[in-house]
Nucleic acid binder design. Structure first.
Lengths: 199, 199
DNA sequence: GGGAAATTTGGTAGTGACTACCATATGGCT
DNA sequence: AGCCATATGGTAGTCACTACCAAATTTCCC
């Protein structure tokens, strides 16, 4: 790896960090990309080469956490699906726990700004699709049915992650995210969750 | 109801319809709000009084369908939760089947434009919250746990709706959306869905 | 019907995100 | 050193969206 990529990664981080700082201090809507570029000491056009939209500056960390977990799920085709999906959940939470303040700030910004919220939801949706794509390769039988099953499974998995994280970030402290996730899985297994019934 | 509100509703529909037409013909990104305003024979500032963003022009119909179903769920506190949730799903699908072309076009536009997709996902998320809020009022016990349970249940319910609709709009024709939903519910009940296991 | 009050409308001027493009500077390799 | 690829900064422009104002329209009350 050359000096070039090192520098590239450095400026990337610098921009994202400065942006985050400004967002937290003055709010998403009250921070302009010019201000961010100035704070990172780069031109606005350089900033746009690294981040296609203002929203991606907020979501990069969460994006990375999810990407890592889904990728590692794809790399482990041996395990049982239910174990694999639990592992995905645990890995995401593990990654997020790496930087709790950042995660809290992301959800905070999403709560206050509709566009950020929208792009966060889209990010989650995209990873649901990625996970479904990984799942469908391990399902046999009718491919149409398999795709449907995979989408539903991936949706429920991401649903657990999302709700656990939302509870986790809203709670002052001292809540173990992975324990919360296990509770959610248990609720699902026990049939303690009100679910639409086919009659 | 006065003449005023009638006229208001008329212009609202006119704007939304013209916008939709232009979006379908030339794409979301290639249509400017000025063009929409001109087509509806109103000033741009009038358009913005009815629709806060360009994206809401696309999503209004789906929004209305979901709003109706969730509202009616709230109005029927008597039934069993599993029946109530099934009814929500069926009502949404029923409403969407009112205008299949429109729904197909909405998901088409969302597929081609990231911002539309993001706002569609946010819309779905907002109704998940609304449904969860309705649910939590019918759950007893620890309120923190109830909120968690409600969020998970609402999430799974909306997940079924979303996936059924996505399959439905992608299929050329002749698929009964409500039957598809019953299949999804059956898969969930039978344990035929790979789900994360708590071990 | 007439006239005041409230509401709706169209227009203007602006901000700020984002794009396309170009000239320059910088790092990587022989 | 010198050449090539890439990274950078700047300019000009488009377009979504906001704040504001003056004119038109509807409603209400007499």
């Amino acid at each position: 790896m050359g000096l070039r990529e090192v520098k590239r990664e450095r400026t990337r981080r610098l921009i994202a960090d400065k942006a985050f700082e400004l967002f937290c201090d003055h709010g998403f809507g009250r921070t302009t990309v010019e201000q961010i570029a100035a704070a990172a000491e780069v031109g606005p056009s350089t900033l746009y080469r690294y981040f296609p939209t203002k929203e991606t500056l907020v979501l990069e960390f969460v994006d990375d956490c999810l990407a890592d977990a889904v990728r590692r799920f794809g790399d482990q085709p041996a395990v049982e699906l239910s174990d694999g999906l639990r592992t995905v959940i645990e890995r995401v939470l593990e990654q997020l726990e790496t930087n709790p303040d950042r995660v809290r700030a992301v959800f905070d910004l999403a709560e206050r700004n509709e566009s950020v919220s929208a792009h966060l939801n889209e990010l989650i949706w995209r990873f649901r699709n990625d996970l479904a794509a990984q799942l469908v390769r391990r399902l046999s039988g009718d491919p149409v049915r398999a795709e449907f099953v995979a989408a539903l499974s991936a949706g429920i998995t991401m649903n657990i992650i999302e709700n656990v994280v939302r509870v986790w970030v809203d709670t002052p402290d001292a809540v173990d995210a992975r324990q919360l996730a296990r509770q959610a899985m248990a609720l699902l297994e026990n049939g303690s969750l009100p679910l639409p019934g086919s009659r």
